[in-house]
């Protein structure tokens, strides 16, 4: 059990003491950076298919679903988006680019093989209705794991003067990780919201959060991020 707040996150029950010791040099204050944008990674219908059940029971019909983990994240994600809207920060979604003639065969976010029993629907890659994009939001269509790869995201962020990112979504080990690393590599401070980020298996989720937190991003509790956005909003309102 970790004893300091830096390590007091989802991975605390799986990370052994010697690993914590080796990684002690990464300990630092975590925060939301200046001029943030909210980046919602792959919150499309396919991730929620089959309902709030363990993903192993969905692997045949809905191999892309995160099941219970996706559904557990719905309420905190709604709160986070609400706080971002109230604070007036830019909101970017992304989803898979499924447009015809968009990519050659074999282009995808992962190397996973197709499942013959998988069920598909026309609206698989529409944003989940609870988080439906609103006027002024931006939806980025991407072909690979990272929201930056082959997309105009950086141009948009520059236009808006964004300097840091608040990231959440799925999957922790795939598109969230790739997007956080690219965000970091492109010079942005990245905050990753723990309760709003998920994967298909807890161990993979926890270890990827652990890696990202130590090396590239500040994993933060949703309430801390919301409190920061609300404080910023109050300060902005007070200044007006």
């Amino acid at each position: 059990m970790a004893t300091n707040s830096f390590e007091n996150h989802a991975w605390a029950d799986v990370v052994p003491d010697d690993l914590l010791q080796i990684y002690s040099h990464y300990q630092r204050e975590t925060f939301v950076g200046p001029k943030p944008a909210l980046i919602l990674i792959d919150l499309y219908n396919l991730a929620y298919r089959g309902g709030p059940v363990p993903p192993i029971s969905l692997m045949d019909r809905y191999p892309s679903s995160c099941g219970i983990y996706a559904h557990n994240a719905i309420e905190p994600t709604k709160k986070l988006i609400g706080a971002a809207r109230a604070a007036g920060i830019p909101i970017f979604y992304c989803t898979s680019d499924r447009r015809p003639f968009a990519a050659p065969t074999g282009v995808g976010a992962t190397r996973r093989q197709k499942s013959s029993n998988a069920i598909s629907h026309d609206d698989d890659f529409e944003i989940f209705a609870d988080f439906a994009p609103q006027e002024g939001d931006v939806v980025i269509r991407k072909q690979r794991a990272s929201i930056f790869q082959g997309t105009p995201l950086i141009s948009h962020l520059n236009l808006l003067g964004v300097q840091s990112l608040i990231v959440c979504g799925e999957s922790t080990s795939g598109c969230v990780r790739a997007s956080c690393v690219d965000g970091y590599s492109n010079g942005f401070h990245v905050s990753l919201v723990e309760e709003c980020t998920f994967d298909r298996h807890e161990l993979v989720h926890k270890m990827n959060l652990f890696d990202l937190h130590h090396k590239y991003a500040d994993v933060m509790k949703v309430n801390d991020v919301i409190a920061h956005l609300e404080a910023g909003d109050q300060a902005r309102l007070a200044a007006e």
């Binding site: 950086i154 520059n158 003067g161 300097q163 590599s185 492109n186 010079g187």
Partner: peptide, 11 residues
């Protein structure tokens, strides 16, 4: 270069 401009906050 782009990441340096980002880090510096250049517009």
């Amino acid at each position: 270069l782009a990441s340096y401009l980002q880090l510096l906050g250049c517009d």
